[in-house]
Structures are given as structure tokens and as C-alpha cells.
Amino acid sequence: MSRPDILCIGAVLWDIIGRSSSHMKLGADVPGRITRLPGGVAMNIAMTLAHFGLKPAVLTAIGQDPAGDELAERAEELGVSTAHAYRSADLPTDIYMACEGANGLIAAIADAHSLEAAGEKILAPLSDGRLATAERPWDGPVALDGNLTESLLSRIAASPLMAEADLRVAPASPGKAQRLMALVGHPSACLYVNLEEAGLLCQCDFASAAEAAEALRGIGVARALVTHGGSEAAEASPGGLTRLRPPEVLVTRVTGAGDTFMAAHIASERAGMAPEAAFARALRAAATYVSGENPH
């Protein structure tokens, strides 16, 4: 089995997304389309990385139920390896449900209880020799998602198994952003957050992505990329602050946009692009995604 180019650790589940072209309010009942697709932050990132020509593998929990078998098969078809996933006979395959209108995301529920229950079992390939060992830790990129519990993220941050890894971190949702505090202070952790998530981490309201990115650096984040919808985005790193505005597009979907941005940025840097060029390419990929087209 060939070595993966990158490990994506976190949620791999079924996305059930209802979309309508109508503006929606609480209690709205409107026509639209409902889709069922492989999803979860780790899976979304992995799929986009595969689109960019990389070989990702997911470390996650997938049930041995029919939904899990179908999900694993579909992932492999999309270029995402599930060979190292923890397949539980006792835990069902996780699921995410969202409702989107012309005015954006209306509501969503993430049922990632199996991933949380599996805990450190999903990391076994990093210590048992399948991918790495304590003596030979994984030294490539790792995409972490905030669906992992805060205690597991804390253990990952302190683990010698991740001492040489290039950690890229996504919060999963504003409701889980606080979990990423476990990665603050890690020497290689790069956080990808939106303006709201940055505010939750810093316990402050920000007027711009640039202000938020610099504040994240101020609390100990090694590198931060902050997006703000169609407004200016910013990257703060030891090399300074970069501000870029994403392309203007008609928004037709929002679920998965942040994951697409993160994956495109990782792929661009892996391809050797300069920091600002990689940042710009990632913003273009996310804009293309929300417009309804494929990001690659």
C-alpha cells in the first residue's frame, strides 16, 4: 500500500443537504432539492485534495453497517483511502443534515457521536506501524477537524506522534470553534477559520479578517487564515499579514466551502506555489465551489 500524501483526521459521514432557491425563515416549508453525498469536514477536505491530484487517507470512524460500507466504497471511488479508518461493529455511521436557502445556511445538525465515541482508536495507524510509529512519527501534512473532542485534540497537540507533522486545522463549525484552543501554541498549527470562529477563539468581535488574523497570532496561533464570506480574507504568519479579496460570484451553496478553501490552500502549497499565490488560488477554488461548480 502506497504512503498517503496527507492524512485527514476527523468526520467522514453522509451529508443530507436540503437546498432551496427561496429565502427561508423559521418554520418555512418550500420546494427544493435534497441530496445525499459523502461529507464531513475530513472527507470534504480529502475529496478536494484528491481533485487536486493528491493521495489523501482518512483516519476516522465508520460503522460496519450498510451505510458505512457504501460510504467507504464511495470514498475509494473518489480517490480517498479508507484503508486506515476504524470500522466499528458497534457504532453506526455518522450523519450530517443541513438546510440551505437563498439567504444561506438556515440550520444544521451534525451527528458525529460515533467519531467522538471511537476517540483515540482512530489514531492507531500512527503508532502501530501502518503509517508511523513512536520512533518514526508521521512527518507529512495532517488536516485535523474540530469534530474531534477537545480532549483528543489536546492529546494530538501534545503527542510525539505529531511532533514532526504539518498540522492544518479546521473548526468544523462555529459551535465547535472553542475546541481549537487545544492547538493554540503548537509550533506548526495553521488554523483556517471564518470571522465568527476567530471571534469565538479570541472572545472578541472583529470588524475585519485582517484584524482577526492578527489577533489569533497574538494569542499564540502559529499561522491563521481567516475568511469573511465575499469580503476581504487575511493570512497572518511569521512572515507578516496578507489581505486578499475573493472573486465575486453568485452563491448557490455554502456547506463545504471552508473545507474546499483549506484543501485548495494545502494542495497549492504542496505544489510549491508562493504563499500569496496559494492563498489566492484557494479563494478562487472556494468561490467556484459556492457558485455551484467543481473547485478544480
Rank of each mutant, 00 (worst) to 15 (best):
A189N: 04
N194G: 01
L216A: 04
A209Y: 03
M162K: 00
Q178H: 13
I156K: 01
R130W: 02
A108W: 10
L123S: 07
D90A: 08
L167E: 12
R130N: 04
A124C: 04
G199M: 13
G140C: 02
P125L: 08
A98R: 09
L126D: 12
G101I: 09
G129D: 09
A108G: 06
L195G: 05
I106K: 11
G129E: 04
E164A: 01
G104R: 05
A117F: 02
V80F: 04
D90H: 07
A212V: 11
G185M: 09
T93W: 02
A177E: 03
V142M: 06
L115D: 05
A165M: 08
A213I: 14
A124L: 09
G199P: 02
F206M: 13
K121M: 08
W138S: 10
A117Y: 00
F206Y: 14
N103P: 05
N103H: 02
W138L: 13
L131R: 00
A157S: 12
E135F: 06
A134D: 15
G104S: 11
A207M: 08
A209Q: 13
A98N: 03
T82L: 08
E164R: 10
G119A: 14
A209L: 05
L161W: 04
L152M: 15
L131A: 05
E76I: 06
H186F: 04
R136S: 09
S154F: 01
Y96P: 09
P171L: 08
R155T: 09
C204Q: 15
A108T: 11
A85Y: 02
R155D: 13
V142P: 06
A163E: 11
A215R: 15
A198Q: 11
H84S: 07
A143M: 15
H84V: 12
C99S: 15
E76H: 12
L148W: 07
D94L: 06
S127P: 03
R179K: 12
